[in-house]
């Protein structure tokens, strides 16, 4: 149909090359370099000092059995990594992170797109509705977690609401049932983060030119066809970025889980990050904790690399990758 020919990206034109006169060539080369050095150094130092060095140090600690006090003397090689991967609890934690990541994409994405399309239409009280959808995102995770922790207690607000509308049979032990707790948490995560997806997609929708919709309408496309073949393809870059942020967020999930369940009951909602704090900080096993942190980092990093390489390639061409 019509999707093939559409592109919004301006054609990349070669930058005109100004011929430099012989005498000024040297100065003109030196100056950009100085500028680069001057402007980049602060950021680079911060990045090295607070990102690269800590990662390296964590990698170093992870090779030791170390309780955080005194010198590092007990070199154990990769034992910490082996211990982590061979433990049921950590395996479960990785599984929980993956479940949340998959659910986020499968459930939150269609929901976000639907809400964004709805809120992009001209309807009464649109600004208010947008605000309502976005409001939970503004709350801190800690506040969200405490509110839901209290509402989800047996006989709490959620149960009362369900009973009030005659759905008392649906009442569950939301946070105490080991087979349910992860999905309860997912609902809270969705409640909290749906607004972010909606706002992102709404911004993306503003980039869909009205002319294209008009052209589609003139060609006799139905509303559904216009959405499916004009709007959604143009939202592609936004959706791909959202998926990226969402998956990384799911892998790093911590605050909500920590406050609402501490990873329990019986590790039914442990994530990699809660496992790290539980077994690293709380047990004074800083070497082991570092190993878990490194594993978490590598998983996120590998995902990010592959995603950049294969999914975001077109969107970020020239900005993050080599232009050619």
């Amino acid at each position: 149909m019509m999707s093939a020919a559409i592109t919004t990206r301006p054609p990349t034109a070669p930058v005109p090359h100004a011929p430099a006169a012989g005498g000024t060539r040297r100065r003109s080369r030196l100056r950009p370099r100085l500028e680069l050095a001057f402007l980049l150094t602060p950021a680079l130092l911060l990045f090295i000092g607070f990102v690269l060095i800590p990662i390296g140090v964590a990698g170093y600690y992870s090779l030791y059995s170390w309780n955080g006090f005194g010198p590092l003397t007990d070199f154990v090689g990769l034992d910490n990594y082996v211990d982590a991967f061979s433990g049921d609890v950590f395996q479960g934690a990785i599984g929980h992170n993956l479940i949340i990541a998959v659910l986020s994409v499968v459930v939150q994405l269609p929901l976000s797109i639907g809400l964004a399309l709805l809120l992009n239409r001209k309807l009464r009280g649109r600004t208010f509705l947008r605000m309502v959808v976005f409001a939970p995102y503004v709350l801190s995770e800690a506040v969200t977690a405490v509110i839901w922790l209290l509402m989800l207690q047996p006989g709490g607000f959620v149960d009362e609401i369900l009973r009030g509308v005659g759905l008392g049979g649906l009442v569950q032990l939301w946070l105490a049932d080991q087979s349910l707790v992860l999905y309860t948490l997912f609902v809270v995560i969705t409640w909290k983060y749906i607004g972010f997806g909606v706002i992102l997609l709404l911004a993306g929708l503003q980039g869909v030119p009205a002319e294209l919709r008009e052209a589609a309408a003139l060609d006799g496309a139905s509303a559904w066809q216009t959405t499916r073949h004009v709007v959604l393809p143009l939202l592609g870059p936004t959706i791909r970025i959202w998926i990226f942020l969402s998956v990384i967020g799911s892998l790093q999930l911590f605050d909500l889980v920590w406050i609402m369940t501490l990873g329990g009951p019986a590790n039914a909602s442990t994530t990699m990050a809660t496992y790290l704090v539980d077994h690293g900080f709380k047990r004074y096993e800083f070497g082991f904790g570092s190993a878990v942190a490194v594993i978490l980092f590598i998983i996120c990093f590998v995902f990010a690399l592959f995603y950049q390489r294969f999914a975001l390639r077109r969107d970020t061409a020239g900005a993050l990758t080599g232009a050619r």
Partner: peptide, 16 residues
């Protein structure tokens, strides 16, 4: 104990 005690906080809120 009360129902669902494994999910009950010790000190937060009336449901604790």
């Amino acid at each position: 104990f009360q129902d669902g005690f494994v999910g009950t906080p010790a000190q937060q809120g009336a449901g604790s």
